[in-house]
């Protein structure tokens, strides 16, 4: 998945135009959304509630796509797929990696 860019700034520009203050606001909103969703996914995983995992992942995936967090979006898609196929081992691996992906996006936002 390393071939997928972490963050593509053009995505948001193409959606709302080059309005930097608004872009920054969206970025902050995304980061804010990430933490509880990630923990929600982890908690649902621990409870073995795959539908909840899939729903949470889907929720964050739409935001990630809109913001241009491409790798996060791809990871969340994987999480959705694993939750659907009940592949618990891969699901755990992807949730762990999602945390890294979110960290990477945060770093990109600071640049």
């Amino acid at each position: 998945m390393s071939e997928i860019p972490i963050y593509d700034p053009e995505v948001l520009v193409s959606l709302i135009g080059d309005d930097q203050p608004l872009i920054e606001e969206y970025k902050k909103e995304f980061v804010k959304q990430c933490v509880p969703t990630l923990r929600g996914i982890a908690a649902a995983f621990n409870k073995n509630e795959n539908t909840e995992v899939k729903d949470q992942a889907h929720y964050l995936k739409t935001s990630a796509k809109a913001i241009g967090a491409m790798r996060c979006a791809a990871r969340l898609q994987k999480i959705e797929d694993c939750a659907l196929s009940d592949d618990r081992v891969s699901l755990k691996q992807h949730i762990t990696l999602l945390q890294n992906d979110i960290r990477d996006v945060k770093k990109e936002f600071i640049k």
Binding site: V35, R39, A42, F45, N46, V89
Partner: peptide, 14 residues
């Protein structure tokens, strides 16, 4: 070995 264990309860916590 790998084990089908839960994720940590402090997963993603600051």
């Amino acid at each position: 070995t790998s084990h089908d264990s839960d994720l940590s309860a402090i997963f993603g916590v600051n």
